[in-house]
């Protein structure tokens, strides 16, 4: 199956590990990935006032270009996103365009240099593709190397689960990452902070608040016996990792390595080329230490 792929700014920069692992996993599962031509940044956050449409211009421009790529390369209508924030923004803009004809008209005027958006795409996050298109059973079949009961704490963050109209799973009790981890032979840890916010972009203006936040999250995961935290959001990954370094002295318990969900899946599938060498060594050591 040929699917479209929208990387977004950070997946091509600090989260390149996530891209490498995710694309390798999907290719191993039989998908052909076609990157959207000339994509633009989505804006990372979706400004919520309804009296303006400017926040939707960049994401809709990307969606228009995704549609042209779809026609040119004859792919399916599925648009893959890896980053939680891109997933949120593209879905919000798509919803706004489809549900409100006035907004759609205004956006068409703004984007008169592009063809009109036809609204044919289905935007899906990496986790949604694993759950809905691949299925948990098929993931289990593909596992070459079990994670041997590794205690994995999943950190969903905010924008994958909220608001409801664009959520990939239940806002209060999500389960998709845990289910995937069970298929890989890991032991998911249920801890109270898994669907909470890490402080997000506050890291730019008031980093102290974010470090306090991430300290709470990591300590909670520690209390419940987590050995590793997995996430899909490049900003959560940065905040959690940097927060542990900044609060090293105050932090109760060990530092916990932060990985992307895709990296553990790639490891379990035996796709060593898709992993950074140090990540592979880290998971190897953790799995071996458990015996």
């Amino acid at each position: 199956m040929r699917i479209l792929y929208y990387p977004g700014c950070t997946v091509k920069a600090t989260a390149i590990r996530d891209e490498k692992a995710s694309l390798a996993v999907l290719e191993a599962l039989g998908f052909k990935i076609v990157e959207v031509e000339d994509w633009v940044c989505c804006g990372a956050v979706y400004n919520l006032p309804r009296d303006t449409v400017i926040q939707a211009v960049a994401p809709i421009r990307t969606l228009i270009r995704a549609e042209s790529t779809m026609r040119k390369h004859k792919t399916s209508e599925i648009l893959l996103t890896l980053c939680s924030m891109c997933n949120h923004v593209l879905k919000m803009a798509d919803n706004m365009y489809r549900s409100n004809p006035d907004v759609a008209y205004k956006l068409d005027v703004y984007l008169s240099d592009e063809p009109n958006y036809e609204g044919k795409l289905k935007i899906m996050h990496f986790l949604e593709i694993l759950r809905d298109l691949v299925g948990y059973d098929k993931i289990k079949e593909k596992v070459r190397r079990s994670l041997g009961g590794l205690k994995v704490a999943s950190f969903y963050g905010c924008l994958l689960l909220r608001p409801r109209e664009v959520a990939i799973d239940d806002s209060e009790d999500p389960i998709v990452i845990e289910e995937i981890m069970i298929q890989l032979g890991a032991d998911p840890v249920d801890y109270p902070y898994r669907n909470e916010c890490c402080g997000s972009y506050n890291v730019v203006r008031t980093p102290e608040y974010v470090w306090d936040r991430t300290k709470d999250i990591v300590e909670s995961a520690n209390d419940y016996g987590a050995e590793i935290i997995v996430t899909t959001c490049p900003l959560c990954a940065y905040n959690l990792e940097e927060g542990q370094k900044r609060r090293k002295k105050e932090l109760k318990g060990r530092e916990i390595p932060i990985l992307y969900v895709s990296e553990l899946v790639a490891y379990a599938f035996g796709l060593d080329d898709a992993l950074e060498p140090e990540v592979k060594v880290l998971i190897d050591r953790m799995v071996r230490d458990r015996g």
Partner: peptide, 18 residues
């Protein structure tokens, strides 16, 4: 902003927009 070169682009874009 301190750590401007270390922050991921996603944080800067989001903060700029908000």
């Amino acid at each position: 902003v301190e750590d401007l070169d270390k922050l991921p682009p996603i944080a800067l874009v989001a903060a700029g927009r908000k």
